[in-house]
Simulated scan of single mutants.
Amino acid sequence: MQKSDFKGVLPAITTKMTADQEVDFAGVRADVAFQIEAGVDGIIVCGSLGEASSLVASEKLAIAKAAIEEAAGRVPVLLTIAEDSTRAGAALAAEGEKIGVKGLMVLPAMRYLADDREVVAHYRAIAAASSLPIIVYNNPLAYGIDISEAMLKEMADEPKFVAIKESTGDTRRINETIKALGDRYQLLTGVDDLALESLILGCHGWIAGLVVAFPKETVAIYQLVQQGRISEALEIYRWFLPLLHLDIGPKFVHNIKLAEHIVRGTSPVMRAPRLELVGAEAAQVRAVVEEGLANRPNLAKYGF
């Protein structure tokens, strides 16, 4: 996979669970098929939205394998590396390459808040474990570690680091990174309700969350921006914003799985300690989704 492949809409799909909280592999395959039919450019499995923290390595590999089989070469499948130790992350990266994963999205090691030197060493060790290209996932708001401009400069000598998932929540970082590093890395927006702004500022793609329920709308926004049809993209985006806000906060997995359930009838089951939303929290998500469905734009108006 070359750097240019990390562009477009890349859904970070949820991990479907059975009633007893086991991975539903038929559900995984159905999700992959649903996204590809809508025109996405790749599939990312076992990310934060995919409940990575509650999956063991063997499950992650099995999920990736199911996604690869369903994709059948139509789009690349990427595996997220979000392990508690560098050793575990490197091992998962190596095994992922063996089964046919085409790229990795890598987080700093979980739990321990490493310093800059340790973070860079972690990323270099993951890179050394396979020949796969890597998206460096920077989400300091959620994970407490900020991969700074200086760190990205230091890491630039490793060609496997090809892209950055920009999830700092600060669109100024996009311009600052481009100014400092030019086109060394492809930038991918990872915050749903900053996606349009980020794409206009120079991000090459959108690693999306609400795409799992609304892939055609997500793809339409991306493609309209690429065509320079910003005012039309903005029309869809403004409709989408209340839904995109569901991707923010500690219960974003809960929110998005419930949204998927309402829109598509998929399973809302999560693996404990997460529990399905109840009461006011569930009602709020339902209200947002039902309003969105009631006012869903006609994409034919935009040529989709």
Rank of each mutant, 00 (worst) to 15 (best):
M110G: 10
K60F: 00
A150D: 10
V225S: 03
Y185S: 11
G50N: 07
A114Y: 14
L10A: 02
V212T: 15
L293G: 08
V23P: 01
I207D: 02
K257E: 02
L78W: 09
D31Y: 08
L201G: 05
I200A: 09
M1H: 06
K251E: 05
A12Y: 13
S148Y: 02
K165S: 13
K65E: 11
C46H: 06
F304N: 03
N295K: 14
V40F: 05
H204V: 02
I200T: 05
D192M: 12
V288A: 09
G50Y: 06
S198I: 06
V40Q: 04
M105R: 08
E59I: 04
R172G: 05
V119Q: 09
L194W: 02
V28C: 11
S85V: 12
T168Y: 01
L107S: 08
V263Y: 00
G39C: 04
E276C: 09
Y222K: 10
K257I: 00
P108W: 08
K257W: 05
I221E: 05
E235G: 12
I134Q: 03
I178N: 07
A57E: 15
D115M: 08
L10N: 11
Q223E: 15
E232H: 12
A283S: 10
R229E: 02
E97Q: 11
A150Y: 03
A64R: 10
N175R: 14
P273G: 04
G190W: 12
L61V: 06
A12K: 07
L243F: 01
R124G: 00
V212M: 10
P215N: 12
L241N: 05
D170G: 00
Q223L: 14
V40T: 03
F6I: 14
D183E: 15
L92K: 07
L152D: 05
V23K: 00
Q35M: 14
G292L: 09
T18M: 05
S54T: 14
D20V: 04
V269E: 04
A19C: 00
G169V: 13
I63R: 02
R264A: 08
K98P: 03
V75E: 00
K98M: 01
S267G: 07
I135F: 09
V162C: 14
E276P: 06
G39D: 01
Y185R: 10
S4V: 01
E217I: 08
F214R: 08
T266V: 14
L181G: 12
F214W: 11
I36E: 01
R173I: 02
L55Q: 04
Q223K: 15
A109E: 09
A109N: 13
L188K: 08
M110T: 14
G202F: 01
L55H: 02
L107D: 02
A109G: 10
V288Q: 04
V75M: 00
D84A: 15
S53V: 13
A163D: 02
T189P: 05
A125P: 01
A220Y: 09
L293K: 12
E290R: 15
S198L: 01
T86K: 11
